[in-house]
C-alpha cells in the first residue's frame, strides 16, 4: 500500500509540483514548504551577509583608507601584493598550525568531557557547570585572567614554580605565547561539551541496552553505536570549530603585552602580538586599523574566505564516508 493511495486531498497536500514532475517520491516534499521553513534565514542572510561581502569585494579592488574620499581603483594589485607578502604567508602558516592543533584537541576534549559527564552520577551537574563556566566569561575577561595567571613577575604559575624553586618562565612572549594561546582556546571546551551532551541524549537507550545484553563491552558500544549516532554532531562541531578557529582574532590581540602606558586607554594594537600568535586575522586587523589599508585588508579577507571555503569543502566531501544520518541528505531513501 503506497502512501499516495492514502492521501486525502482535503489535507491540503498538493499532488503535483508546479511543472516539475520528479517522480512520485517528490510529491511528498513540496519545495515551497522547504522555502517556507528556511525563509527567515534567506532574507536575513541576503541583507546582512551578501551585501557586505559584495561591498568588501569592491573594496578589495581599491586602495581606500577607510575615511577619506581620495581612493583609486587598483584592480588585482592587492591580491598580487598579498601573494608576494611574506607576512601574509607566515600568518597563514601559523594559523594552519594553530587549527591543526586546536581543533582536534578541542573536539576530543569536548567529546571526552561529555561522555564522562553524561552519566547520572552525583555532582555531575556541578562538574558540567564548572566546565562550562569559562564559556560564560566574555573573551576580554578570559584573556585578562590568563594574563594574570601567566604573567612572568606576578602570575600564579610562576608563583608556584618559585615555591618549588624553579625560575620564572616568560609565558606570554615567544616562544611560549603560542602554547598559552592554545590553552586559552581549550579552556572553552565547555561549549563543545554542551553540544555533545545534547547529542548523546538522542541515542536511544534501547540500542545500548540491547547491545550490552548481547555482550558488547563499553568500548564496542561506543564504537558501534554511540559514535555513529553522534557523528552528525561531531561533524557539526568539526566544521564550525574549524571555521571559527581559522578566523581567530581577538585572543592574540588581548594576550599581547601591554601597549600604551595606560594613558592611551590601553588600545589593542596588532603590532605587539607575539610572533607565535600572529594569526592571519591579526594581520588583517593590523592592515585595517593600524595601517588604514582597507582595500588591502578587504582583499586579504576574501582570500581567507576562499581558503576556509576550500578547507570546509574537503571536510564536507569526506563526511559522506563517516557521518551517519537516518534521513539521507541528498534525496535518496536510506
Amino acid at each position: 500500500m503506497t502512501l499516495l493511495t492514502r492521501q486525502d486531498p482535503a489535507t491540503g497536500h498538493p499532488v503535483a509540483r508546479a511543472g516539475r514532475p520528479r517522480g512520485r517520491r517528490w510529491k511528498r516534499y513540496p519545495t515551497w514548504k522547504f522555502y517556507a521553513f528556511v525563509s527567515p534565514w534567506v532574507i536575513g542572510c541576503l541583507a546582512l551577509t551578501a551585501v557586505p561581502m559584495g561591498y568588501a569585494l569592491l573594496l578589495s579592488f581599491t586602495d581606500f583608507d577607510g575615511l577619506s574620499g581620495n581612493w583609486r581603483w587598483v584592480g588585482l594589485d592587492n591580491y598580487t601584493t598579498a601573494f608576494h607578502d611574506p607576512v601574509v604567508w607566515a600568518s597563514l602558516r601559523r594559523t594552519g598550525l594553530y587549527a591543526l592543533i586546536a581543533v582536534p584537541l578541542s573536539l576530543a576534549g569536548g567529546l571526552g568531557l561529555a561522555l564522562l559527564l553524561n552519566q547520572r552520577l552525583r555532582a555531575m551537574g556541578v562538574f558540567r557547570t564548572i566546565f562550562y563556566l569559562p564559556s560564560v566569561v566574555p573573551v576580554v575577561a578570559t584573556a585578562l585572567m590568563f594574563k594574570l595567571v601567566f604573567d612572568r613577575d606576578t602570575g600564579l604559575v610562576n608563583g608556584i614554580l618559585a615555591w618549588v624553586g624553579i625560575d620564572a618562565v616568560p609565558w606570554l612572549i615567544d616562544p611560549h605565547a603560542f602554547t598559552i594561546l592554545i590553552m586559552l582556546s581549550l579552556w572553552g571546551l565547555g561549549g563543545g561539551m554542551v553540544i555533545f551532551l545534547a547529542g548523546l541524549q538522542a541515542i536511544p537507550a534501547e540500542l545500548l541496552e540491547a547491545a550490552s545484553v548481547d555482550g558488547a563491552g563499553p568500548l564496542r558500544r561506543f564504537w558501534h553505536i554511540t559514535l555513529p549516532v553522534l557523528s552528525p554532531m561531531i561533524f557539526f562541531q568539526l566544521v564550525l570549530t574549524l571555521i571559527t578557529t581559522l578566523q581567530t582574532l581577538v585572543q592574540p590581540l588581548l594576550l599581547a603585552p601591554a601597549v600604551s602606558g595606560g594613558a592611551g586607554g590601553g588600545a589593542t594594537d596588532a603590532t605587539h602580538v607575539q610572533q607565535g600568535d600572529f594569526l592571519y586575522m591579526v594581520n588583517v586587523y593590523a592592515q585595517f586599523f593600524s595601517y588604514q589599508k582597507y582595500g588591502y585588508g578587504a582583499a586579504l579577507l576574501w582570500i581567507l574566505f576562499l581558503v576556509i571555503l576550500a578547507v570546509t569543502a574537503v571536510v564536507l566531501r569526506s563526511s559522506t564516508s563517516w557521518v551517519h544520518y537516518e534521513v539521507d541528505q541528498d534525496g535518496s531513501e536510506q
Binding site: 561581502m53 568588501a56 582574532l249 586575522m281 571555503l309
Partner: peptide
C-alpha cells in the same frame, strides 16, 4: 548558509 559563517565579522 555554511559559507556565511566563513565570513569574518570584521568584514560585515
Amino acid at each position: 548558509m555554511l559559507a556565511t559563517t566563513m565570513v569574518p565579522q570584521i568584514l560585515t
